[in-house]
């Protein structure tokens, strides 16, 4: 074991990494909260994130403007959210199947488009990512400063979106509609509010956020696109949503727990603990599964969760 490497700056580095690792999961989870609150289970997040990553890369690569990349990622996410909406709301397809379909489509299509655009390269195309933006004064607080206030703008954006999502969900008319549609679509329908329209809007939010989560990997972390680069983060986001009991604040906690477990696993390998790397690599997933199982027993799913809405008596 290399315990002599365990310095304060190393520990700070691990904590800062946990925030970076949590960011794409948090972004996608925040959107998925709206989707699931409206009664739709979108398992297509993984594929939407990959499409968001690709579009984010192309947008920024072609225009040399990272913000256009962010926008492109979100717009593509919205398109795929609408596709999910068409399948699950308009066509009333099984949502699990539709979602998995989108995940497979996103993985394949993003790879194909990347190859069509760039062909076979010996050096992969790259771009400069969002620079680290230390927040004045706050970043100079010992420990907390470098952990929380020395990140790039997309990380801050994700953190700010947590209270924003809370306010929209709990304090606005739209949030009320979303929650009502997921709990009792019949009642909402009799009040003259369109169930389908509300669910589409929730999917637009969910798609945009998943697209942003994918774009973060490219624009905020790596500066390049890679096949299947999400590596399961979309599914982790769905798990985080269940853990959060559909609450943005708790989603922040859930995403951070996964980020911390990942960062911890990485540092345990660096410190050369006498545990096989294969076991350590399981750690974040094992923790997520344990948390998910323990929480989901008490979780109160939205009543109309994953149930397509049929108007009138023909259900």
């Amino acid at each position: 074991m290399n315990l002599n490497l365990l310095t304060t700056s190393f520990v700070i580095g691990v904590l800062a990494a946990s925030i970076r690792l949590a960011t794409p999961i948090l972004l996608s989870a925040l959107g998925e909260i709206f989707v699931e609150r409206a009664g739709i289970l979108n398992l297509g997040i993984e594929g939407i994130m990959l499409m968001g990553a690709l579009s984010g890369f192309l947008g920024a690569y072609w225009t040399h403007n990272l913000w256009i990349g962010v926008l492109a990622g979100m717009l593509t996410g919205i398109l795929f959210g609408l596709l999910m909406g068409f399948m699950s709301i308009t066509a009333k397809a099984n949502q699990v199947v539709a979602g998995i379909g989108i995940t497979i489509l996103g993985g394949g299509l993003s790879t194909l488009l990347f190859r069509l655009v760039f062909g076979l390269r010996t050096v992969p195309p790259t771009l400069k990512i969002f620079p680290t933006l230390p927040i004045p004064v706050l970043s100079r607080i010992p420990v907390i400063g470098p952990v929380l206030f020395e990140h790039n703008i997309l990380v801050y954006l994700a953190l700010i979106l947590v209270p924003v999502a809370s306010v929209v969900l709990y304090r606005t008319h739209f949030g009320l509609k979303v929650r009502a549609v997921g709990e009792s679509p019949d009642a909402v329908d009799t009040r003259g509010i369109s169930v389908g329209r509300t669910r589409y809007l929730a999917l637009i939010i969910g798609g945009a956020m998943a697209g942003l989560g994918g774009a973060y990997l490219v624009l905020g972390s790596l500066g390049l696109f890679w096949t299947q680069m999400t590596a399961g983060r979309g599914f982790i986001a769905v798990a985080v949503v269940v853990f959060s009991k559909w609450d943005p604040g708790r989603a922040l906690l859930g995403a951070w727990v996964f980020g911390l477990a990942s960062a911890l696993q990485i540092s345990l390998q660096t410190l050369n603990v006498p545990i096989a790397s294969q076991i350590l690599l399981m750690l974040p997933y094992v923790i997520t599964i344990i948390v998910l199982i323990s929480v989901s027993r008490r979780a109160e799913f939205p009543s109309a969760y994953a149930v397509p809405y049929f108007r009138g008596e023909d259900k």
Partner: peptide, 22 residues
């Protein structure tokens, strides 16, 4: 260190940064 997934570039980058921090 091992990343566990040949496509998880974000994870690999964090593993490298972690070693550099050490």
């Amino acid at each position: 260190s091992f990343v566990g997934d040949f496509n998880d570039l974000s994870g690999a980058k964090e593993a490298a940064l972690n070693q550099i921090n050490a």
